[in-house]
C-alpha cells in the first residue's frame, strides 16, 4: 500500500538554533514525506508522546547544545518504555565523532553531522524504517 513516510522533526534542549532542523524538514517534505515539525525546546517526554500520537516511522532530532549524550538515550529509553521502540531514531547537529559510538550503542540508528547531504539522510530513513 502506497503511503507517505511520517517523520517527527524535533529540536530538544535549550539552544535556539533550528535552521538545520528546518532544512532537513524541508528536504524530507520534498522527498514526499509527511514531516511533523514540533519546533524548539522540546523535552524528551514531549517528543515521545508526539511520536506516538502522530504514529511516525522515524524521529529525527537535532541537537546543537552539547546535551546529546543525555537527550538521545533518554528519548530512545522513553520510546521503548512506551512500547514504541520500533520507531527509528536518528540525530543530527554538532556531535563530536568520539560520542557517536556511544549514541549508536544507546539505540540511535544514525547520526548525521553538519555537511551531510540531505539525500543520504532521506535514503537512510527509507531503508531503515521498520514498517514498509
Amino acid at each position: 500500500m502506497e503511503r507517505p513516510i511520517r517523520v517527527l522533526v524535533a529540536k530538544p534542549g535549550l539552544d535556539g538554533h533550528d535552521r538545520g532542523a528546518k532544512v532537513v524538514a524541508r528536504a524530507l517534505r520534498d522527498a514526499g514525506m509527511e514531516v511533523i515539525y514540533t519546533g524548539l525546546r522540546q523535552t524528551p517526554e514531549q517528543i515521545t508522546e508526539s511520536a506516538i500520537q502522530e504514529d511516525v516511522d522515524c524521529v529525527a532530532i537535532s541537537i546543537l547544545s552539547g546535551a546529546h549524550n543525555h537527550l538521545f538515550p533518554k528519548i530512545v529509553k522513553l520510546l521503548r518504555e512506551k512500547d514504541a521502540g520500533d520507531i527509528l531514531v536518528i540525530g543530527g547537529g554538532v556531535i563530536p565523532e568520539d560520542d557517536i559510538p556511544g549514541l549508536i550503542e544507546a539505540g540511535v540508528a544514525a547520526i548525521f553531522t553538519p555537511g551531510t547531504p540531505t539525500g543520504i539522510t532521506i535514503d537512510f530513513i527509507k531503508e531503515n524504517i521498520s514498517r514498509k
Binding site: R29, D30, V35, I36, S50, Q53
Partner: peptide
C-alpha cells in the same frame, strides 16, 4: 512531492504530555 510540513503542534507543545 506529496510531502508536507505539519506544524500545528508547535503552538501546542505543553499539551503533548
Amino acid at each position: 512531492s506529496g510531502g508536507a510540513i505539519l506544524g500545528d503542534r508547535i503552538r501546542m507543545n505543553d499539551l503533548s504530555t
